[in-house]
């Protein structure tokens, strides 16, 4: 079953003795449902990774970093997990995130999606969906609302959208909230 897009799965392992980009490794690319599941079954669950590691799933041709021309004007919907949620929720939420991307759950707004990242961190893990244009309010909000629904988050819970340009300057201002 062909996917709308070819996707690249990346792995980042923090090694401070090397420059950031040398710690980023392409695992594989796939463009069918079957190859997605084959990849998924052969890699470690996110919750089993060590702190400082990331997985990133991006459309083929987009590097999983702010500096990429398709990312630099964009931003991310950010889901921050409490420490105790690594074992109860992280793997399910990351799988739901990937299914939203490869299944094009955001319909025509899916073209705004660049990728998604899961960060494994001691202080609390994070999952984010990256979109290409932070000023495209209609798409950003649609993606955020659908994403939150697919994650099964409580209506009382909120997730925030941050522009990469703000994150890069260490600001954590939410541009949008759903």
């Amino acid at each position: 079953h062909p996917l709308q897009n070819r996707w690249a799965l990346w792995f980042f392992k923090n090694d401070s003795s090397r420059v950031w980009q040398d710690n980023l490794h392409l695992i594989t690319k796939f463009d069918t449902v079957e190859d997605f599941w084959s990849t998924y079954s052969h890699i470690q669950q996110a919750s089993k990774l060590s702190s400082g590691c990331d997985y990133a799933l991006f459309k083929d041709g987009i590097q999983p970093m702010w500096e990429d021309s398709r990312n630099k004007r964009g931003g991310r919907w950010l889901v921050s997990l409490a420490k105790h949620q690594r074992h109860s929720k992280l793997d399910r939420l990351w799988l739901e995130t990937m299914l939203c991307l490869i299944g094009e759950s955001f319909e025509e707004h899916s073209r705004e999606v660049c990728g998604a990242v899961v960060n494994i961190r001691t202080k609390g893990d994070k999952i984010s969906v990256w979109t290409q244009e932070a000023e495209n309010q209609a798409s950003v909000l649609h993606i955020g609302q659908v994403y939150k629904e697919h994650l099964g988050l409580s209506t009382k819970a909120t997730i925030g959208y941050q522009a990469h340009a703000d994150t890069a300057t260490k600001s954590t201002r939410n541009k949008f909230v759903v």
Binding site: H1, P2, V33, G103, E104, S105, E107
Partner: peptide, 18 residues
């Protein structure tokens, strides 16, 4: 062109099919 959209249920079923 037409966008290829798969819902969660379909994707999960594909996981279990041989």
């Amino acid at each position: 062109g037409t966008r290829i959209i798969y819902d969660r249920k379909f994707l999960m079923e594909c996981r279990n099919s041989p």
